[in-house]
Each structure stands twice: as C-alpha cells, then as structure tokens.
Computed example of a mutant assay.
Amino acid sequence: MDITGQTRICAIVADPVQQVKAPQLINAWVDKKCVNAVLVPMQVAPAELASWAQAMRGLKNLDGFIATVPHKIAMCDLCDEVSPAAALVGAVNIVRRDPDGRLIGHILDGEGFVAGLRRSNIALEGKRVMLCGAGGAANAIAFALMAAGVAALAIYNRTTAKAQELIDRLKPIYPSGELTLATDSPVGFDLIVNATSLGMSETDPLPFRAYQLVATQIVAEIIMKPALTPVLAVAQEKGCTVQFGLPMLECQIDLMADFMRLGQR
C-alpha cells in the first residue's frame, strides 16, 4: 500500500478500538480492487463523539467511516441525513462524507448478520429466536430477523425498558409477528443471538444462562475478537451449531465500500 497525498481516507470509530477487524478487511479490499484508499482505526470516547464527528466534516480527503461499539445509536443523531433503514432502526454503522461536508448515515448490521447466517446454510424461516441485547447492532438484527421470516422473536436485555422499546417499534411493522420479552433462559429457542458486548473481556459474565443450552440449538455471536467468545465455547461444549461474529462484517464489506463511494472521488 503506497499512501500518497492523493490517497482517500476512511475510518472506523470505536471505544475500545483494539478488537476491530474492519481495517484488515477494508484494506485487503482496496488492495484487491487497486483503489487508492486506506482505512484507519480511531478510538473516541462517547463524550467526545460529537466534536469528533464535527471535525470529520472538514476533512476533505475523507470518504466516510464505520461506526461501531458504543457509537451506533449516538451517531444516528449526529448525521445530517440517514437512510430510511437507519431511521427505522435508530442506529447507523456506516457514514459517508459528501464533498460539501454533510454526513449521511446508513445501517448494514442486520443485512450483514442475516447474510452471514445464510452463507453458513442456517435457515431463519420459521425459527424461534432469542436475541440478547437492545443496542444499535441488536436493533438492526431484530428488524432483519423479522424481515427474514422468523416465527418468533424474544428480546432479552438487562435494561428491560430498552427491550420493550425495541418491541414497540417492531410491532407496527410486523403486527402479526410473535414479539415478546425474554428472560435470560435459552430454553425453547432454535437460535440464540448474542448481540451484546459481553464476551469482549475475559471478565465479562455470560450474556444468558448458557449452561441450559442443548445440542439442537444454534448460537450466534456478533463479537469478532475473541473469535471464540465464552458463550460460544460453552455452546460448542454442549454440541450446538455456532456462528462466529466475523461473517456479519465480511458480508458488509462490498456494501460499506460502495456506500462510502470509497476511492471514487
């Protein structure tokens, strides 16, 4: 990679940022496509996100950035415009900087998550799903799962009000769907999704009562580092089918680059 004064820049903003995989994947993409661009990681605390986003407006060689934990919901309000999908979900994970400095947000997490499952030959139609989490990625995944035709979606979050708020936004769009609050028990579900950040640190508690898992269940993760999170390790021991976190991002790379118009200016 030969970085020059003509190289276009994109970024990923997170806190922490050490675990992100987008730099490797995007930079491999630009190398393969012979695009003069580079993605760099940027660690920004939540309290500084608004001022950081404002500064990005003036960076004329910036094509855009990826927003990840914990910034997906907050970034939605910092954009000048968001896609209908992002407005529906209430979060963004990809932002384009237009030449006039305006920030345009979109969400691809749900689409990427479902595509990753399908790539692993995991069917969703008719499944009973337990979703752990109610943050930005969980919101996107919830809408994508309902659109994919799951039979029932139960949402578990430590803050019950956030889970209920997500259900309340889903119900008008999927009025015939079975949408309920869940406890931390995975009993009775076909697919259990960890859409929380629990598992990024070795000291994190498990996101649900994983010891209740049985071999017929599928457990999916959105965390990418470590690849084998504690809950996936338990799921493997129980004989469950497991889905790692990386495919969700891998299935978004072309879409992210296209949305940012990476290297096209």
Rank of each mutant, 00 (worst) to 15 (best):
N61M: 15
L62G: 03
L62Y: 04
G64A: 15
G64S: 11
G64D: 07
I66T: 01
A67F: 00
T68N: 00
K72G: 09
I73R: 04
M75Y: 03
C76D: 14
D77C: 06
D77P: 03
L78M: 13
C79D: 11
E81A: 15
S83L: 09
P84S: 05
A85D: 12
A85E: 15
A85G: 04
A86W: 10
V89S: 10
A91I: 07
V92C: 13
N93A: 09
N93W: 07
N93R: 10
V95Q: 00
V95S: 00
R96H: 12
R97W: 10
D100W: 01
G101T: 08
G101K: 10
L103Q: 06
I104S: 07
I104A: 04
G105F: 09
H106M: 06
H106V: 05
L108Y: 00
L108H: 05
D109Y: 03
D109K: 12
D109R: 10
G110W: 02
E111I: 12
E111C: 10
E111L: 14
G112P: 09
V114Q: 10
V114I: 14
V114H: 02
A115Y: 01
L117F: 03
S120F: 03
N121C: 12
N121P: 00
N121F: 05
A123P: 06
L124R: 12
E125W: 05
G126A: 03
G126D: 00
R128W: 01
M130G: 00
M130V: 10
M130F: 03
L131Y: 11
L131E: 09
A134H: 06
A134D: 08
G135L: 12
G135A: 09
G136S: 07
G136Y: 09
G136V: 11
G136I: 13
N139W: 00
N139D: 02
F143V: 01
A144Q: 01
L145T: 10
L145S: 05
L145H: 03
A148Q: 07
A151Q: 14
L153W: 04
L153Y: 04
L153R: 07
A154Q: 09
A154P: 01
Y156I: 04
T160H: 06
A161M: 05
K162Q: 08
A163K: 13
A163L: 07
L166N: 09
I167C: 14
D168R: 13
D168S: 13
R169D: 03
R169T: 03
L170I: 06
L170A: 12
K171I: 14
K171Y: 05
I173C: 11
Y174K: 02
P175C: 10
P175A: 12
P175G: 08
S176A: 15
S176N: 15
S176E: 12
L179I: 13
T180Y: 04
T180C: 09
L181Y: 05
A182K: 01
